[in-house]
């Protein structure tokens, strides 16, 4: 049980590290955006920078639905994978396949 807790800790730490790494980039992106808002007059003059975003309300709703659906599917798949992992590990530890071969 201790071992599992440890593993969980390491996993969550890794994911946190990964995220914090990209949060850094996000912060940086926000700073740049703020800087740009200060220079908004200049930006209006050029008005050539393309900042991508959903075209219309339909597309942005579609995107939210997609993201939610994707995470639900991923969580369900991981749940099933966990069951499958348990099954194959058990089969391996009781030497199901190697016994059959003999």
């Amino acid at each position: 049980m201790m071992w599992k807790m440890k593993r969980l800790l390491v996993f969550s730490l890794l994911i946190f590290l990964l995220f914090s790494f990209f949060l850094l980039k996000l912060n940086f992106a926000q700073e740049v955006m703020e800087e740009e808002q200060n220079k908004i007059t200049q930006a209006e003059e050029n008005a050539e920078k393309i900042v991508p975003s959903p075209k219309d309300i339909k597309e942005s709703i579609g995107i939210y639905v997609f993201v939610v659906w994707m995470w639900i599917a991923i969580i369900v798949l991981i749940y099933i994978l966990r069951l499958k992992i348990k099954e194959v590990d058990r089969l391996f530890y009781i030497r199901f396949f190697s016994a059959k071969k003999k």
Binding site: L26, P52, V67, W71, L77, K84, V88
Partner: peptide, 29 residues
């Protein structure tokens, strides 16, 4: 299949993170 299943879990999480970040923070031009 034991290790591949474990890898699949990692792949799924990474895919989810990638697509979420890509959708909400697209690069500008």
């Amino acid at each position: 299949p034991n290790f591949v299943y474990r890898e699949s879990v990692v792949w799924l999480i990474l895919l989810g993170i990638l697509f979420t970040v890509a959708i909400f923070l697209p690069p500008s031009l």
